[in-house]
Design a protein around this nucleic acid. Sequence first.
DNA 1: TTGAAAACCGATAGGCAATCGGTTTTTAAT
DNA 2: ATTAAAAACCGATTGCCTATCGGTTTTCAA
Lengths: 126, 126
Amino acid sequence: MQLGDLEKQVLHTLWQQAPASAKEVYAILSKSRGGSLNTIQSTLDRLYKKELLSRAKEGHAWYYSPRVERRQLIAKIINQATEEFAEHQQSGLIAAFASMSEELDAKQLDELETMIQERRQALERR
Amino acid sequence: MQLGDLEKQVLHTLWQQAPASAKEVYAILSKSRGGSLNTIQSTLDRLYKKELLSRAKEGHAWYYSPRVERRQLIAKIINQATEEFAEHQQSGLIAAFASMSEELDAKQLDELETMIQERRQALERR
DNA sequence: TTGAAAACCGATAGGCAATCGGTTTTTAAT
DNA sequence: ATTAAAAACCGATTGCCTATCGGTTTTCAA
């Protein structure tokens, strides 16, 4: 899943505001980067074909929405990275922890444990 | 940091066995994928220019070694992914956890906590 | 000194994001 | 129904990067 610069910007835009038409996305992004509406249109199309966006016709324009949440995409990228590089396949997160724990301080460890507790409770509640 | 297929294979090879010359890497990889020695040479060169490998001359050949550990590269990729996509910048690992915790079961949570404990002890020992 | 080994250089192919002009389709207003 | 505007769609182009490999130069050791 390789994403170009503009594709990322479009995704960010839609995570903030969706659904949105090409014109609307263009209105937002053209301020910072110029370019033409057509460019935005074909980028939306590419993302749609990559199944990262869904779309529905409303009036005469397509309205696009992200098909994955921000966090899901991050998770996907991490899983992919760890699959490709980790020695033994394990859950992406476990591999990530193994790779990154050296950089963590006590406070961050506390944070993680809090999140783990929350997750445990979510599991129990089922 | 975009890596092609062959570049990944070369990295894997060197993580298992380094330092190694182009010829040695070629000897290993040609079994599974054929190709020419020159291709391996230029791939090593590209990785060297990307500062993922170091090299030293021994005899008349360069001997290459990884300049980053496997886990460092994974960590780098994760940090990069989270920087690009996370809303608020936080430690890559914290963001990763927030993104991925939904997928974890009780056993994996246990594993993580064990690793956290280990990390705590490593911190204390300093 | 010379022949082999390896590095180095340059060209090419293939894939993908970004770009945008031009054409077709759709829609809404008259 | 007609038509003008809006938007989608199509296709070409550019630029970047990996992979590939032939050919040339450099290096080293016998």
